[in-house]
Amino acid sequence: MASVPAAGNIKTKPPEIKEFEFGPWKMTTCKSHILESEGEQRKRYDNKLELPQLPEMVFPENVLRVVHESGAGIEFNALDALALVNAHADPVKVAASAEWQNARSGCEHIKNVVAPFDWTFTTAYKGTLLQKNSNAVMKVSDTTEQINLDNLKRREPIHFYDDVLLFEDELSDNGTSIMNVKVRVMPSCFFILMRLFCRVDNVLIRVNDTRVYHEAGENYMLREFSSREEKTSNIPTVAHTDPNEVSKYLKLTGQSRERLDFQQLTSDS
């Protein structure tokens, strides 16, 4: 079970910040403490979010940020991810019907909440686009172009890697919901994978993936989002806790592919 420090017992320490430059790009990751029960950060979350409850562990300062020298970029953070959680309805009830009712009957996490909401904290967050100055442009358009998986499989040295946790919840011992984002930089490209892994015991497993890929020398990134889901009864038990292994048993329920074009920085911009 995840260990959650009591309010007021969180020891503040300097955040762990890493930076790496890849051509015209600057990568920044930050890892810090969990969200406290009071204070300015908590007020910010309460003011922006309509959720009656937050995940047990939220990391308000944790972020992965990738910014082009033009000022355009993308970042991944917990606040914007949670802003897309359904705060007014419980879609798991619709998706799982009778199985959901039985599995949820003894869940104190839900009994204590009057207003219905997505207690699995499922989000279709794909990242937050950045525009650091008036010359920064990031144009988003649908595309049929796909990420070059063969390029990712090549044996290249990894110049930079990090794994940043955004939030986690054990659904009152009824499963788990965890969202993290990883970045990997090789000589020819960089690759980002943000994953929401949600398991409701005896009901369903869901994986939402956002992949961002950029090849060196190009003036755009590719962003792919996919959502997969399946009842746990149709998945071998041994795979239930392994996001990589379980993915092959899940049905695709949603997918999008986008091209993110950015403006090159010029002397007369």
Rank of each mutant, 00 (worst) to 15 (best):
G8I: 04
K11F: 06
I17Y: 09
E21I: 08
P24N: 13
I34Y: 01
L35Q: 00
Q41M: 07
Q41D: 09
R42D: 10
L49G: 03
E50T: 05
P52F: 02
M57Y: 01
V58Q: 05
V63R: 01
V66K: 08
E75M: 10
F76H: 10
D80I: 08
L82T: 02
L84Q: 01
L84F: 06
V92W: 02
V92Q: 00
V94C: 04
S97E: 08
A98L: 05
E99V: 13
W100G: 09
A103Q: 00
A103V: 12
S105V: 08
I110K: 06
A124D: 08
A124R: 08
G127P: 05
L130V: 11
T144Q: 06
N151P: 10
R154Y: 06
P157H: 07
Y161S: 13
D163L: 11
L166C: 02
E168V: 07
D173P: 12
D173N: 07
G175Y: 03
G175R: 01
I178V: 10
N180C: 01
V185T: 11
C189W: 15
M194Q: 11
N202C: 01
I205V: 02
V212A: 10
A216M: 15
G217L: 07
E224S: 14
E224K: 15
E230R: 07
N234D: 10
I235Q: 01
V238D: 11
A239G: 03
E245L: 04
V246Q: 02
K248F: 03
L250E: 01
G254E: 00
G254V: 00
G254C: 01
E258S: 13
R259M: 07
R259K: 12
R259E: 07
L265P: 10
S269C: 15
